[in-house]
Design a protein around this nucleic acid. Structure first.
Lengths: 145, 145
DNA sequence: TGCCGATCAATGCAGATGCATCCATATAGA
DNA sequence: TCTATATGGATGCATCTGCATTGATCGGCA
């Protein structure tokens, strides 16, 4: 039971954690400086904006990897902030449909250039185009299923 | 100011976040099942174990990317649990030296095989050796200063 | 139709985190 | 040496998260 990890796997594991932390916190720091929406809020709004027909919380949960109780409360806050609208789901009375509001669209749009610039700075500019594609492909394999 | 992100950069960004989340949460779930130390605790103990001469909190902060106030309280908990010992730093009275206790060593050692197995399952087995090395190399470029 | 296990979502409570600030000591410079 | 500034670390407070549980409805099946 005293398993071994190859050096390569150990290194990839450590760096996966470190690199994500480094990039995300740098991006968030830039965003905060610019006074734009938190990343999670942005992600939710972006998903809602691409699904004008409405989104069920559990879908968001799966797509964005939220814990159920966290998402529930995140939505509360976003509703309070006027960025998201909750409606009873017509086909399932347990559930609800979520929609982005006009204010939500406006704020998401205003946040976008800041995130784009930050991601370019902290990720895009550190790799060549080919390397970036390779990285995305490899990370993709870790996500499957 | 309405910057653009290439598709490759966007995809790499999203997958970096998702892949790390998927792998870490799968590993933590396995670890929790086995009733072993939380990942952060493990990381701290491992760092302390490799520096028997003692570690300053701010070093740990830099190496493991902790926020200062989080680390301060994490150490509190670990001291309470008897895994870490705090001593006044002889060369800087503002600071302290941290050491792992025998209990800390024992628990870290007991946790290791579970983490090794989980990391192998959720990362190692999803990539070939060559892919793993390539991934580590690319992630390395994202971390560089 | 009536019942039972599964699913969607909310919530009370304890513990963790972020932010700002504070205290103590160290260090550089006049 | 004396002062100003920087650094190491702790902490009060508000917020967020995790866990377990609850309430409501759904869907399958007898």
């Amino acid at each position: 039971m005293s398993e071994k990890l190859s050096d390569a796997v150990t290194k990839a594991w450590v760096r996966l954690v470190r690199a994500r932390h480094a990039v995300v916190s740098a991006v968030e720091a830039d965003a905060k400086e610019a006074g734009v929406l938190p990343l999670e809020w942005y992600d939710v709004l972006w998903d809602l904006e691409r699904h004008e027909e409405g989104v069920r919380p559990f879908e968001l949960e799966q797509r964005l990897l939220f814990a159920q109780y966290n998402l529930s409360r995140l939505i509360d806050r976003m509703v309070d902030a006027g960025l998201v609208k909750r409606m009873i789901c017509p086909t399932d009375k347990r559930g609800q449909m979520l929609f982005i509001t006009d204010l939500g669209k406006k704020q998401r749009k205003a946040s976008w250039p800041h995130y784009a610039r930050a991601v370019n700075t902290h990720l895009g500019e550190k790799l060549t185009e080919a390397e970036t594609e390779k990285l995305a492909a490899l990370l993709g394999k870790l996500i499957e299923r």
